[in-house]
Amino acid sequence: MNYYITTDEKLRELVRTLAEQKWNIISADKQGTRFMYINDGKDLTVDAKARPTKVSAKQFVFPKSEPLFFFKKEHDDLKLIDPQAVQQKTVLFGAKPCDAAGLPIMEKLFNWDYKDEFFNKRVENTVVIGMACDYTDEYCFCTSVGLAPDSEKGSDVFLVPGADNHYVVKEVTPKGAAFIAEFKAIFSEAAQGDIKAVSRTQPAPEKKFNVDEVKNWLDGHFESEYWSKAGETCLGCAQCAFVCPVCHCFDIVDENCAADCGRRVKNWDACQFGLFTKHASGHNPRETQPDRYRQRVSHKFKYYQDKFGETLCTGCGRCSRNCAVGIDIAEIVANIPM
């Protein structure tokens, strides 16, 4: 593995270069709400100490609304039109380990029986510049789901903050290596010991539960009494799923574009909505909010394990931090009466 050194100023210069070459450049916004496209070096936010953004970065590989195709009525015929191909080269700056890890986790779902070319193409075109995290609050629990503030999972290039606005740069994947090679002026070569990473000022999040024990319990407690209390105050808004870096449920709908044409769109959906499982007959297998909350926890810590051998959670704590009624998923999982 090769190491390089760069500075905050050079990263901003990189943004300017990339903008000239028409790359899509994504960075967290200054308010810490979400990731967004930027075009100017001064808008770049790479801050290890920042709280994870309220909304995760997943929408750049899995957009909140994505047209699958368009259709147009022509005489008695229906003409299908493909959306413009995803081909824009993209770079995601400053993804925290809990953001970057989401990509390889979702990749399994989107390549399971059907290969989702939209998702794959976006991932393929995106260089993820991850960053070691120096933030911990009561909602963080990356260490409980097998990650850590310095996990490189999902990153192509990984930044570790060093002294004086320097970053130690690690190339993690061949894609990352190619990116660094393409922008040599930004990254100067270094040996591993050349520059010291600054030590974290925050302790790593404490380990709140053991995913294997949780999985074992979930295997046999679908009907447990525990659920009725756990999801009791949930209001059924789905912000938890929408801000989550790995929640990936979607709905497919047709929409009008004009009188004679329309489009089929893939929209985010979430298991916390009552409509999510409502049958045409009116029957709803997940009738109450606790049923839906059980689904959320089970999908994350059991079903995804069963199917793909991974936990569907990166421990970023966004869902809990943003929850209007203070439901904390880590607390609920940790309090399971095992």
Partner: peptide, 29 residues
């Protein structure tokens, strides 16, 4: 542009109590 249509605004609202919200009606949409 930032809205993700999670409907948290609706669910958190004490006065948004419709059994079927107009946003969930699909005939017509």
């Amino acid at each position: 542009e930032k809205c993700v249509k999670c409907y948290a605004c609706r669910q958190a609202c004490p006065l948004c109590y419709c059994e079927q919200c107009i946003a969930d009606k699909s005939q017509p949409r």
